[in-house]
Design a protein around this nucleic acid. Sequence first.
DNA 1: CGGTTCCTTGAGAGAACTCAACGTCGGTGG
DNA 2: CCACCGACGTTGAGTTCTCTCAAGGAACCG
Lengths: 252, 252
Amino acid sequence: MAPFNGNPQSYASPVTALKPNCLMCPAASACLTRGISQDLISQWNGAVQNHLSLGRPGKALFETGDAANAIYVVRAGCIKSLTVDGDGNERVRAFHLPGEIVGLDAWGAEHHPSTAVAVVPSQVCRIPKLAALQKLAESPLLAQRLLERFSHDLAQAQALAGDFTADQRVAGFLLAMRARLARSTALKLPMTRRDIANFLRLATETVCRVLTRFESRGWIRSDEKNLQLANESALLRLAEPIGIVAPLARAA
Amino acid sequence: MAPFNGNPQSYASPVTALKPNCLMCPAASACLTRGISQDLISQWNGAVQNHLSLGRPGKALFETGDAANAIYVVRAGCIKSLTVDGDGNERVRAFHLPGEIVGLDAWGAEHHPSTAVAVVPSQVCRIPKLAALQKLAESPLLAQRLLERFSHDLAQAQALAGDFTADQRVAGFLLAMRARLARSTALKLPMTRRDIANFLRLATETVCRVLTRFESRGWIRSDEKNLQLANESALLRLAEPIGIVAPLARAA
DNA sequence: CGGTTCCTTGAGAGAACTCAACGTCGGTGG
DNA sequence: CCACCGACGTTGAGTTCTCTCAAGGAACCG
């Protein structure tokens, strides 16, 4: 059970390791700090308390009911937010990729309404709400950035709440992941079929069947977690009614 | 076609009518200004540009694609946010009651992703985003209030996005309306069955059938728009998996 | 009063779910 | 080293919940 050692600063002194440098962050191109001045980035960096490694899939960042004193920016990996109802049924509410923020649904609450769990080995930056609030007061630009993030997540959640066919939902999900992972048409999905299905309100089997259908039509090529989007326009046509929200950040 | 005349300041001079006084607002107990000092309320009042009357149901506040330079706080009535897809299908994304904010999904965008329409004769306060941002920088408390609102709406949207039975969704909706309208167990729903169904991703007929079922069980008494929740605990038990988000505001 | 919109109830159809089974992969321990 | 186990992905067959289609009654408005 070797500890996950993906932290590029793990060899540095503990203090340095605890206080990552936003200027050298691998997720900078998708973070709140994207495209702002170095001075401002340094200022924001002051609000970052430390960063945490979630070494193995399933490791919880926080659980429902925990005190909610901070938000977390994903530095690497993938985090999922989920709730568990009285019958023990899990429900995936969101996936968070590098640069995205975990815990926004708890900004106005003392306790987290959802649990956050690593999907793959991940790292996050912890930013206490109070420290963040202080920085926002000092910089309207940062405040605007955070509000944009809230607004985007809200619009996204509302779009996804719609009533769509299984094909539409899967197509929309693939396109959203493609835009957020933002490399090429080749995707490496971090999460399992089960998580995707749960997130999209579908049965695991349905997701499988849809993917098989897409592949038989030549729209995608699928090798388990590795997907190749061969016909994005077809997927886009299918997913149009969802009104996918364009991602805020692009690779610089 | 007499103009809606519910504005208590309509007899005052035009300037006064255009700049409502937050200290005398009927929606104050549910607004961002709830429970803060009079000085701070007055300060926030400075950000309020004017207020608008939407005299008849169906009147649009703004439409998808319009420039998004402001947010709107509902002063009276009820506003619905909706989108229209390529096939002309409407989808209700949210209802906004007095004290709640319309347009948050467009804070980070230049154009509104959704259309806002009056459900009943309504009034809203227009607050330019720039003016709001300025006030937020001056007052961390106001900033916190707005962030809480975003957070709450996000959590709510995610909760509602889940996969629930028709009975669960309707029960959850009734309880949420009860909490937001916050009077007694007697509810006067502003919106039609069609709107409720669309919002809950159900057919109008299904909503009717569920309400009939609830009534036959003695859980509610229904006279069209006027509902009486006779057995809230039964509804609560049914809606538990949704994880209803408690409303931020209560009547003072 | 027609005309429209809304609410309600009934009967049949369809999309997705549940249940079930099988192959694969990776980790674990004998 | 390999058998075992569990998790994951995939495919098939029957069931169910909700939708669609259809129609009638009530309320509202010009």
